[in-house]
Design a protein around this nucleic acid. Structure first.
Lengths: 151, 151
DNA sequence: GATTGACCTCAACTTTAGTTGAGGTTCTAG
DNA sequence: CTAGAACCTCAACTAAAGTTGAGGTCAATC
């Protein structure tokens, strides 16, 4: 058996320190339904240990480029009663993977187009693919399709 | 020789239509020193035709993920008196190229890490590389936090 | 020569992701 | 038991990148 301290819930200071997220941001996440906490008799927050993982998910999702609104939706799909399992987290991570792939592909397309344009310095609104995406890169969901037919 | 209309300066409505940028955004860019305009006797804006290219540069820079502040700096490095040449634009475009490369590399790195994590669903703050970037990506400096496209 | 659409300025509002500060309470170590 | 660190709430502020609206002017057409 591990020492009791290992199972003790986390104070906001501890969670902040261990996650690298400022207390003010944790408050903010709570206000926005991304995390939650129990309270002590004296009204201080006490976080379940798996909140650490939840915060980790939030941070990494942000690095992928997702807005908090989307992250919350993903977190909402976690089981309500029980502590999420590895499988639960893995399922959510797969979403990231798709996002990442799309985002990388989009930037690579942009780079291809750019390579064609650097030589000419054109930036012509009429002819340059860079100026005529004709496809919403940022439509968040529609991945990179074929918005770079070379002209 | 082309018809005279080709050389006529652009009204804000025309610039907006041809660039796909709202008039309110053009006002905003002007307030922030990204573009400028002559005025008619009646105080209406008239844009030199190469402003179209300037706006194109702004839009594309945003797609690459650069904040307006940086874009302005880049534009400030354009020759002051004369209309920029293709070479001028090409020089600026090279900056994008570097930005893009960095951004793509960072996301690919993240994806690699993610692939290692999806199997385990770990997201462990201690062991998972995803939570311990320790590389430049996590540090606020180089990377704009917002990689989202303007919609 | 009037109408109508395009344009002008200025101020206030929007969204996202938080931070900062004031004023007050709780927890813990000595 | 008490000092001080850590915590609480609430409101206001920040920054980026604009949008919206009010109230007024300009310009091109009938």
């Amino acid at each position: 058996m591990q020492p009791a301290t290992t199972h003790r819930p986390l104070t906001i200071g501890e969670l902040s320190e261990r996650s690298g997220v400022a207390p003010s941001a944790l408050h903010f996440y709570e206000r926005n339904g991304l995390i939650e906490a129990e309270r002590t008799a004296g009204n201080q927050r006490r976080y379940r240990r798996d909140t650490l993982r939840r915060v980790a998910f939030i941070k990494t999702s942000q690095r992928v480029g997702l807005p908090l609104k989307d992250i919350r939706e993903a977190l909402d799909s976690l089981p309500d009663g029980r502590t999420p399992t590895k499988r639960d987290w893995a399922r959510l991570s797969l979403r990231w993977r798709k996002e990442l792939d799309d985002r990388i592909a989009a930037l690579q397309h942009l780079r291809n187009d750019l390579d064609g344009c650097i030589g000419c310095g054109c930036l012509s609104l009429k002819s340059c693919t860079l100026q005529n995406p004709s496809d919403e890169l940022g439509a968040s969901g529609a991945g990179a399709q074929r918005w770079n037919q070379p002209t």
